[in-house]
């Protein structure tokens, strides 16, 4: 074990350089972020992930953001346990009808200002589950959505680019 720690200390970080913020994601966000909140948030972002019926594929990749290779915390992005501590709800899945209430209540429990990110094809338009009796479909049908990150599932680099866009927009605010 100590050999390992020694190697980790001398071997240099395994973390990769960050990708640039995605232009489209930035553009989508621009109109929606309100000034006061920008100032308040500064450069850190607390995210509460909500699985609203995902196949778990999106969660696997969101998890990867926390591994040492992507290490999302270095950008000031943290995943938090409670919506009460969150600035952002990162929502996955085609919003099953059995989860719609819980999703709404999670949003209500999140203090203002708050942003909703629809993560993955399902969250954006229901994906392959669109039209099912058991699904509402897009997250947008339940909550106001500020940013969409496409993919099935989005790769960690794509998630990171989307979240960085959210962050950069905040950091550059007056």
């Amino acid at each position: 074990m100590f050999k390992h720690i020694l190697r980790s200390l001398t071997g240099g970080p395994v973390t990769e350089a960050s990708p640039g913020p995605s232009e489209t994601a930035l553009a989508e966000l621009a109109g929606r972020v309100d000034r006061a909140s920008k100032a308040r948030l500064g450069r850190s972002l607390s995210i509460r992930q909500v699985d609203a019926g995902s196949c778990n594929g999106c969660e696997l990749e969101i998890h990867a953001l926390n591994n040492p290779v992507y290490d999302v915390e270095r950008f000031g992005i943290r995943f938090v346990a409670s919506p009460r501590h969150a600035d952002v709800l990162l929502v996955t899945g085609p919003v099953t009808r059995n989860m719609a209430d819980a999703l709404r209540r999670t949003w209500e429990a999140t203090p203002d200002p708050k942003w909703v990110v629809a993560c993955g094809a399902c969250a954006i338009d229901g994906g392959v589950f669109a039209g099912s009796y058991a699904c509402v479909g897009a997250v947008e049908a339940v909550l106001p959505v500020d940013l969409r990150i496409p993919g099935c599932p989005p790769r960690p680099a794509e998630l990171l680019a989307g979240l960085l866009a959210l962050l950069e927009r905040n950091a550059t605010a007056p």
Partner: peptide, 11 residues
């Protein structure tokens, strides 16, 4: 359980 029932068999 059942919260993430998506109606997959119906689809």
């Amino acid at each position: 359980l059942g919260y993430v029932h998506k109606g997959l068999e119906g689809l």
